[in-house]
Nucleic acid binder design. Structure first.
Ligand SMILES: [Mn+2]
Ligand SMILES: [Mn+2]
Ligand SMILES: [Zn+2]
Ligand SMILES: [Zn+2]
Lengths: 136, 136
DNA sequence: TTCTAATTAAGAATCATTACGATTTACATT
DNA sequence: AATGTAAATCGTAATGATTCTTAATTAGAA
């Protein structure tokens, strides 16, 4: 996801262009990895000392609901990153040190077959955790 | 995992047999699904009105570290259940209504191949979520 | 420019989880 | 059976992430 596309989606859905949203989206745009609400707040309070938690969390929720950001839970904390550009469904290796990801083209749902008859499947999660080459 | 096996592991590692541990393990033993710390506490406070959070969480951590319980995070809360008996590595469908699971014999790591060269893999998570036949 | 609904600030509240000092208990030893 | 001791538990406070509340501010339309 790039910035213009993100703003297009926001505008389409009647959301206003604010300086806080700009900065949040810029952070995700230049930092291609999973960040927590606190990660964002710490950086943003340098430019906006009055930035509040509520603003961060509210906008993160908005961005996730619009498909601009994706979310996962790592060691009990919510982490966010830009939604992948790729339109092909896939999964991720996540570096537990730096939060960077690497795409994994495999989806295990392709191999499920008839293993779950009469089960109503809502979604699935497949993630691989470890250290990326830079963090070893 | 059954109760005698769980106690065997606990004894082997020098843990004492207490009434609280007995009741916690019994709950997991008769209720084959994912439970939160609060689920346990609510039930147990009927028999032990003085049961404290510390006791629940401390024992859950002990049981997980000994491989007696397994743990996952569902909608921001830690959930626990008896460790599977099966010695073959596998994954789970989890019913988001009742917490019951169904085993899925597939492991996507078998299909990863050389997709992650020089990445240091620590672990992985694959879970399917939805409603089991009884909960639909 | 004015108006209005959306957005934000500030801080309190909530919820799960962890920490801690005091007390009790399991169980090995006498 | 009584004793000693480390382990376990209790009661409660602390923590940390997230959500809520209300008043003030602001973006964008009119
Ligand atoms: Mn991706
Ligand atoms: Mn299983
Ligand atoms: Zn998939
Ligand atoms: Zn696996």
């Amino acid at each position: 996801m790039n910035l213009p596309k993100a703003w297009e989606i926001l505008k389409e859905n009647g959301f206003k262009e604010t300086s806080k949203r700009q900065q949040i989206l810029e952070m995700f745009s230049e930092d291609d990895r999973y960040l927590t609400a606190r990660d964002l707040l710490d950086v943003m309070q340098k430019d906006y000392p009055s930035m509040s938690y509520d603003t961060v969390y509210r906008n993160l929720a908005t961005f996730v609901s619009l498909g601009i950001l994706e979310e996962t839970e790592l060691s009990g904390e919510r982490h966010f990153r830009m939604q992948c550009e790729s339109d092909h469904h896939h999964h991720h290796f996540i570096c537990l040190d730096c939060g960077k990801i690497k795409e994994v083209p495999v989806c295990p749902m392709d191999m499920i077959g008839a293993a779950l008859p009469s089960y109503q499947i809502a979604n699935h999660k497949f993630e691989i955790y470890g250290k990326c080459p830079e963090c070893q």
